[in-house]
Each structure stands twice: as structure tokens, then as C-alpha cells.
């Protein structure tokens, strides 16, 4: 049996003490162990930011991407080797700022990739600037008077675009986070897990306590049906005194790879590579 220790590297995490990333780091390793996924069968594609530094701390095959570009890289990898479990780890600036377009297009294709967004509502690695998920009025080095932009709502946005799995986790609830990760990885399709992970250094507003005071878990909500799109959209728009976490929505939707005839059978990258006979292809040029 694998344990979370099988996914430790020889490097110690470099995050600030108390960083919300620690819980993601632990929960992900536990999820991979409990799903019995050997490190060599997993490819994690990281964005750039504090989340991306995780590259060095989880032992699997890893790709440290460009800022905002982790999602298309993961899709390319999964299309070429469908046997791999492909996970993306990125931040809110990475995924909802620089890479927002890729995120929406990834939902359209529904390639079987799990996308974990480390959402701390601030830019951490660049030392505290406003983020796409910062609430209106949030004061930072780049918005000294408070931001005039509304926050991106990744849950509602992805639902509107037709996502097949969307959840929100919280670093203050590592056990629940692990369950969500497992469900997302097992989901056949593109799955978003947005994780509130407080930045203890640069975000003095959205702290652990701030979240603890507001969150409620959809899994514990009576009669909540995660196959009900309307209910999911209603919860996705809840923000303020109360904030929902848990799995908002899960549905069966055609997955890209299983819809592509040429990807039936052996994974593309595993097929023997030999010089291809092109003689039949030349007919149309004769």
C-alpha cells in the first residue's frame, strides 16, 4: 500500500509557516496514495507562483510550466498518453488571470484532467498585489485605493461554460480536501477544484478565521443534489456572509479522448513508432 510519504521528495517546502499550501500538499499526497497511483503513473503540471513551487515537493513526474499555461500543457500530455493521471496545480493569478482563456476552452473539450487552483485571493510570490479573485475594494501594492474590479467567480463561470465537475475546498479542512481531490481525479472529464488557501503573509483580510466564520459544506446540506445544474448555479453565486464549499456539480459529459476514434486502444505515445507508409496519401496529389 502506498502512503503519503511515498510522494515526498528530498526537498522541504519553502512556503511561509502557516501557508494554506501545506494542506493542499498533504491532501494531494494522501489522495494519490489512497487511489494507489504510483508516482511514475502521475504527471503533475504546475503553474508559476507559490503553488508552482510545489513542483519540488511532490514526488511524481512533474512539469513546471509557464505562468498561465499549465492547462494546455496538461491537455497535450493527456491526449498523448491517456494512461497517465494528469493533474494541474496552479494559482488564481496563473489560472484566472494569465490563463483564463485556456481554462474556459479546457472545459469545452472536457479532457480528463484535474485542475487544482490554489486560490488565496492575492499574488503571493510577487509579494502582495491584487488578484483576479480579490474582492472589490481589496487594498494592495498595486491597488492602494482598493481594487475597482469585481472578483472572478470560477465556480459560476465554469458552470456556465458547461464544466462536468466543479468543487471548492478549503485548506482549513484537509480531510475534506482529500475527498474532493479523490473524487476529482476519479471523475471522467475536466474537473476544477478551487481551493481557498489563505496567504498568511500578504492577505490580512481573507484569513483562515475569515473563511471558518463563513463556510458551509454542500455535502452536509440536506437534499443537495450535485447533479442539479440549477441548484449548483444558485450555490455558485452565494458570496458574502456565507460561502459554500464541497462538490457543487458533477455530470456525465462526453470526454474528449474517448470521443476520438484514433485514440481507441493503446495510448498514443506507447504505440511502436515506425516509418509510416504514405503511398496511399499521395493519390490525391497525382
Amino acid at each position: 500500500m502506498l502512503t503519503d510519504k511515498d510522494f515526498l521528495t528530498k526537498q522541504k517546502p519553502s512556503w511561509c509557516p502557516g501557508c494554506g499550501n501545506f494542506a493542499i500538499w498533504i491532501a494531494m499526497r494522501q489522495a494519490l496514495a489512497e487511489l494507489n497511483l504510483d508516482p511514475h503513473k502521475v504527471l503533475v503540471v504546475y503553474g508559476v507562483g507559490c503553488s508552482g513551487n510545489d513542483t519540488n515537493f511532490i514526488k511524481t513526474y512533474a512539469w513546471h510550466s509557464l505562468h498561465g499555461r499549465a492547462v494546455p500543457t496538461a491537455i497535450g500530455a493527456k491526449l498523448a498518453n491517456k494512461d497517465l493521471t494528469v493533474i494541474v496545480m496552479g494559482g488564481d493569478g496563473d489560472g484566472y488571470g494569465e490563463g483564463l482563456g485556456h481554462f474556459l476552452h479546457a472545459i469545452r473539450g472536457n479532457v480528463n484532467v484535474t485542475y487544482v487552483v490554489h486560490d488565496n485571493k492575492v499574488y503571493g510570490l510577487t509579494t502582495g498585489q491584487t488578484a483576479p479573485t480579490s474582492d472589490r475594494g481589496f487594498k494592495t501594492k498595486t491597488t492602494p485605493q482598493g481594487t475597482l474590479d469585481d472578483a472572478v467567480n470560477p465556480i459560476a463561470l465554469s458552470l456556465a461554460q458547461g464544466i462536468s465537475f466543479v468543487a471548492r475546498g478549503f485548506s482549513g479542512q484537509a480531510e475534506n480536501l482529500k475527498h474532493i481531490f479523490k473524487a476529482a481525479i476519479q471523475h471522467e472529464g475536466f474537473a476544477l477544484v478551487d481551493v481557498f488557501q489563505p496567504c498568511v503573509t500578504f492577505n490580512k483580510v481573507n484569513t483562515f478565521q475569515w473563511f471558518f466564520d463563513k463556510i458551509y459544506n454542500l455535502d452536509e446540506k440536506k437534499d443537495y443534489n450535485k447533479a442539479d445544474f440549477q441548484a449548483a448555479m444558485k450555490e455558485a453565486l452565494v458570496w458574502g456572509e456565507k460561502i459554500p464549499v464541497g462538490i457543487f456539480y458533477q455530470a456525465n459529459k462526453p470526454e474528449y479522448i474517448s470521443s476520438l476514434p484514433q485514440l481507441k486502444g493503446m495510448a498514443l505515445a506507447k504505440r511502436p513508432m515506425k516509418v509510416r507508409d504514405i503511398s496511399k496519401l499521395l493519390y490525391e496529389f497525382k
Partner: peptide
């Protein structure tokens, strides 16, 4: 941008 990063992902796992 998506194109080239997909190509990188595919090449990384062994596609031509």
C-alpha cells in the same frame, strides 16, 4: 499559446 504548450505536453510524454 495553447497550441505550443499542448505540443510541449505531448512531446514531454513521448509523442512526436
Amino acid at each position: 499559446i495553447s497550441v505550443i504548450n499542448m505540443v510541449l505536453g505531448a512531446a514531454h510524454v513521448g509523442a512526436r
